[in-house]
Nucleic acid binder design. Structure first.
Lengths: 148, 148
DNA sequence: TTATATGCAAACTTTTTGCACGCCC
DNA sequence: GGGCGTGCAAAAAGTTTGCATATAA
């Protein structure tokens, strides 16, 4: 779904669309990566230097989009907190606690878990992104060489 | 595993054990819940008012325990960041984005996922706690009553 | 004795709030 | 025109750092 469609859907719900809101949505829609506040600011700065959006407003717009269910928020640990459009194709990250590497994985791995949580608890998982911490293959190998 | 055993194991690794460190470990070991910095401070205050531990030191001790792999850190959203001993019996939380309810679930639900990530990516998940965001059964039901 | 842990104070980062002004519908 | 969104400045919350002192081994 492109950002124009998203904006139309938001408008159809009676929400007011301003230039600032459009710019934040465009920044999120421009990539499938997950963006920090700084990433969003940087993208707006690069794409539309004539209309900077203050930190305050970016925070308020992200809160509004989260409340509407259009944006997810994820704590990526060292990287900080990142945001993404829920409409993006789903993917997730494995984050290595030893070397900090992030491994992108498809959503398919989570489908069985989601089905189970829905079946057993009636709980509907509503994130387009999950961050899973642990240790990557390389670091596991290196650690096994030392006398641990 | 009780906290005495944990402390012995840490000591066996050549780490220095101080009263402050013992108190933080005791606070974490006293419950199977996940504790915020304030929870830890509060527990120390209640159990051992004669030896308060400064915020600075609690942060440093938690960082140290995380590096050693004895403590997990989880972002619980509104509740803030919580810590728990990795040796505790594993459990996880479903957090409702609508009403804020937290539902505790057993670790068993995650075993297949962990096995798959280990098999497919060589990645070893190392958390004793995962926070999963979504919407609980009751809020799903209530929302379906309105014209959404 | 000696390296390491701690407390205090201050700095720093990130996020939130109050209020006057400006803009979308 | 009226209500809602925005920017600025300041505050608040959470976390980190430097340095002198205290303590475990």
């Amino acid at each position: 779904m492109d950002t124009t469609t998203i904006i139309e859907q938001i408008q159809a719900r009676g929400e007011r669309i301003t230039l600032s809101r459009r710019l934040v949505i465009d920044a999120l829609g421009h990539t499938h990566e997950h963006l920090t506040i700084n990433d969003i600011q940087g993208h707006i700065q690069a794409q539309n230097p004539a209309h900077p959006v203050s930190d305050t407003t970016v925070y308020r717009i992200l809160q509004w989009l989260k409340d509407l269910g259009w944006v997810s928020q994820t704590d990526m640990g060292q990287t900080g907190i990142v945001y993404a459009l829920m409409s993006d194709p789903c993917h997730h990250h494995l984050i290595c606690l030893t070397c900090g590497a992030t491994i992108t994985i498809e959503d398919a791995a989570f489908v069985p878990l989601r089905e189970q949580l829905s079946r057993d608890y009636g709980f509907e998982v509503r994130v387009d992104h999950m961050a899973i911490y642990g240790q990557c293959a390389q670091c596991r190998q290196e650690q096994s060489h030392s006398c641990q």
